[in-house]
Simulated assay, not measured.
Amino acid sequence: MTAGISSQRRNRFHRRGHHPELRRLQERLSDAGAEPVKKQSLQFPTVTCDDDGNLSFSNVAVTIAAGNGNGFKMGGTNLPGNHKLLNSISYDNAAKGIDSNSCPDVKVYSSTSYNNEGYNVALYTGNKSAVTDYTADGVISFRKGTDGKEQLTLQSQSSTAVYGPNNFYWDSETQTSHNKSTNTVTVKESWFESLDTSVAPTRTQTAASICTACSC
């Protein structure tokens, strides 16, 4: 699917419950609303895998009142997994957009999180004695008409691995998304081709590479 909503840096957007490309990510269907709490008839997504090991989901499961509404839930039980999320978008979710779910070593690349009801980006672990190993590059967290904070809890690791110049996190105090750099850059709505999340996305075969670097 191509982005129905996309960034000028070619980020791909998806609707709630749809999952774009993942790389070695343990997908949790519960957050797509596919984990039943009662017996119900469900239609599960069709999953395809390309030559690079990226997974694509279509025919998303029927949404029911189950799961906790996170977009990408990338861990569990404080266990390390080195899970990677790249070239992805999470938006309009009922909870967090990108959620480490206590995994201490998640890697996030070239991905955007927009207008989620919880944190747009949450990197944390419940193991307070663990040394985290989070990495982020090319991450954009943006909001319009909503507010919220990020949850970036680093433990005994370098902050530059998460707060690099190509990462833009939402600042609730200034109501802007910006990087942390000597040359501060603030995200503008004009960076995006559209922020209309009511438009269903499609995908073209030519969208093989997506990046979020400002020079793109």
Rank of each mutant, 00 (worst) to 15 (best):
T2I: 05
T2K: 09
G4W: 01
S7D: 09
R12M: 08
R12D: 05
R12L: 09
F13K: 01
R16E: 08
H19E: 06
R23M: 05
L29I: 15
G33F: 07
V37D: 01
S41A: 15
L55W: 11
A61E: 06
V62Q: 14
T63H: 14
A66E: 08
G67D: 06
G69R: 07
N70I: 03
K73Y: 07
M74L: 07
M74S: 01
T77C: 02
G81R: 02
N82P: 00
K84S: 01
D92A: 07
D92P: 00
N93C: 13
N93D: 13
A94E: 13
I98E: 02
V106P: 00
V108P: 13
S110R: 02
S111W: 07
T112Q: 05
S113Y: 05
S113I: 02
A122N: 04
A130T: 09
S141P: 08
R143V: 08
L154A: 04
Q157N: 07
S158D: 13
S159A: 08
N166S: 15
N167F: 05
Y169G: 11
E173W: 01
E173V: 15
Q175E: 14
T182K: 14
S190M: 05
S190K: 12
S190N: 09
S190W: 02
F192D: 05
S194P: 07
T197D: 06
R203Y: 11
T204K: 10
A208Y: 05
A208E: 04
I210N: 09
C214N: 10
S215P: 02
C216Q: 04
